[in-house]
Write a protein that binds this DNA or RNA. Sequence first.
DNA 1: CGGTGTTAGTTGCAAAATGCATCTAAGTTG
DNA 2: CAACTTAGATGCATTTTGCAACTAACACCG
Lengths: 228, 228
Amino acid sequence: MPQKAIICTVDVVLLCLRGTVLNVALWRRERAPFEGSPALPGGYIHPEEDVDTLDAASRMLREKTGIASPYLEQLGTFSGASRDPRGWSISIAYYALLPAELIEQEPAPGLVLQAVEQLKGLPFDHKDIVQAAVQRVRNKSSYSSLPVYLCGEQFTLPRLQAVYEAVLGEPINKVSFRRKMEELDMLEAVEGAMETGRANRPAQLYRLKHEFQQCLSVSPRSLTAAAG
Amino acid sequence: MPQKAIICTVDVVLLCLRGTVLNVALWRRERAPFEGSPALPGGYIHPEEDVDTLDAASRMLREKTGIASPYLEQLGTFSGASRDPRGWSISIAYYALLPAELIEQEPAPGLVLQAVEQLKGLPFDHKDIVQAAVQRVRNKSSYSSLPVYLCGEQFTLPRLQAVYEAVLGEPINKVSFRRKMEELDMLEAVEGAMETGRANRPAQLYRLKHEFQQCLSVSPRSLTAAAG
DNA sequence: CGGTGTTAGTTGCAAAATGCATCTAAGTTG
DNA sequence: CAACTTAGATGCATTTTGCAACTAACACCG
């Protein structure tokens, strides 16, 4: 016998890199509780419109930012009695990565960018959710090419290395970094394109190979859909 | 404004190793839909009793098996319209690891152990959930000491290596394996205890160091509780 | 026009980590 | 006590990693 309805929402941790610090995108809440406070974008699931919760997260981001397909992955589900003043609740959290330019240019109403290290005054358990997302990103960045999704369409290797170093918080050896990128085999040089402009040797521009450009990452549910 | 109630359950993938094959514990369902079919143990969340969904998963396992604290970790949340005939639904999935003896000795009513490679006839999207759990376990086993939770209290290094090889599905170099265990620094020799009995040199028995014996792994929510 | 500064990208080598074969150890069995 | 079996250690070859030095390609400046 089903239990009585419980509060069940989807929240999104949208991360971008400004300079060398990770920032999270917050929006001023338009309704109670915590009306007016900057918080993670989120809301109720719409079973009629949403295929699954990944779809719900994607829809929320699109509504807030107009961006259709950032890197988006399920983070985890947070639950408990104390996280929402209205009572026991569940939030399925996702995290997304975006180049900072995309969000800084956009005149999104109510948007607040905040450095992830000094979060204060977040409602619910949103601070915990953000910290879990940051930890996930740092961890995955140490063995994958996740940080490329914080860069734009095209980028140089020195730029990408700087992004890695910012995310991981430690310097990386140049040769090791390039070897690793080589063996991951996810980048391709953009024909002839070079980043120039300053008083130095111009750098080769790269982009994600086509097969990795599908940024909307697979969730357990969509894996099913693809396999069936 | 909250959406109308959606079906929201917790399911547990309980894995153990029989011989060299991973098995999942299924129970015959006691109610519709799919009454009588072997399926993952699960059920509705009880906000009154459960601190969070980890707690709900733990409770379900305890009710089914009597086992209080296996290794238990959140796997992910599965959602969609097609996974449950009753309509759009959400399942927060957990996975647990247990020594096979604990579950084989127990006279659990309705229990069916099934090899994870040839699952058939599972209701809902339980096959997908099991496969996601197996993939997670394989992946984590390649860099962590996760498989120790498939062994009993005490075990020898040759035995543990066999467990790793069964989970990963490939042979491991003996010296490399022992070096890795050494550097993980999670095991301690049991004073004087040796496993003997056959026509050979007896092997040293080991156990998890105390600080790792807390098998109930931390979830995002309980991390909060610990930090606060 | 050529020197200088600055960043990009490569090469060679030392150091560390890994894998493999072999060797020794400690028991049981006949 | 010789033969067999598995546990565990040791030595060395191979691979991987990290570092420093080197070459390359620009702009700027005299």
